[in-house]
Amino acid sequence: MGRDTSKQAKKKAASASSECVSKMHDLSIQKIELFKETEGERKARLDEIVTLEKVKVEEVREHCKKMLDIERERLALDKQRFHKEAEKKEKKEDERILAINLDQCLPMQCVYYQALQEDIIQKLMSQRRGPTQ
């Protein structure tokens, strides 16, 4: 192989090598652009997920708040029912005490029930006067 032929072979190899390097450079640029695109898509997806999670948390918070309000209402109703039942029992007991015939009781029972009857009558009188004043 002569000197000219050897130089030509080296030039071809160098140009082929530079073409290969150029192609590799182009491929690496394409790869970087692809990563940039996927990174942008990933960020957009993450932003969407964060937004959905915020909405979900807010809905859960609202649900818990509603459940708490419902529970408070239920407790208030239970309290009212308990007071009404207590008033009913007290009224029934007062009626029973007022219905006792003091003439047929023993003297000690007579004193006891008479005091209870007087207390009941005073309580009723104060309840009637209370709202009018």
Rank of each mutant, 00 (worst) to 15 (best):
Q127T: 00
M108T: 13
Q80A: 09
R81V: 06
T51C: 12
D94C: 06
K123P: 00
D119I: 05
K84Y: 09
M24T: 15
S28G: 01
D119S: 15
R74D: 09
E118W: 02
R96S: 03
E62I: 15
E62C: 08
Q114R: 15
L52I: 03
I70A: 14
Q8M: 11
A16N: 12
R96C: 02
K123W: 00
K88L: 09
V21A: 09
E62N: 15
P107V: 11
K89D: 08
V55Y: 07
E39S: 14
K65D: 13
M67Q: 15
K31P: 02
F35C: 08
E118K: 14
I100K: 07
K43R: 13
N101V: 02
D47S: 12
L106T: 13
L102M: 07
I97C: 02
M1Y: 04
S126E: 09
Y112G: 01
R81D: 06
K91F: 09
I29V: 12
K12C: 03
I32F: 05
Q117T: 09
V21I: 07
K65Q: 15
V57P: 01
R45G: 04
K12P: 00
L98I: 10
D94M: 07
K7E: 11
K11F: 03
Y113A: 02
M108Q: 14
E19Q: 09
Q122T: 11
S15P: 00
I97G: 01
K84N: 10
R45A: 14
I121E: 05
I70H: 06
T132F: 00
C20L: 12
D78M: 11
F82L: 10
R42D: 04
Q30E: 12
I100Q: 04
K43E: 11
K66D: 13
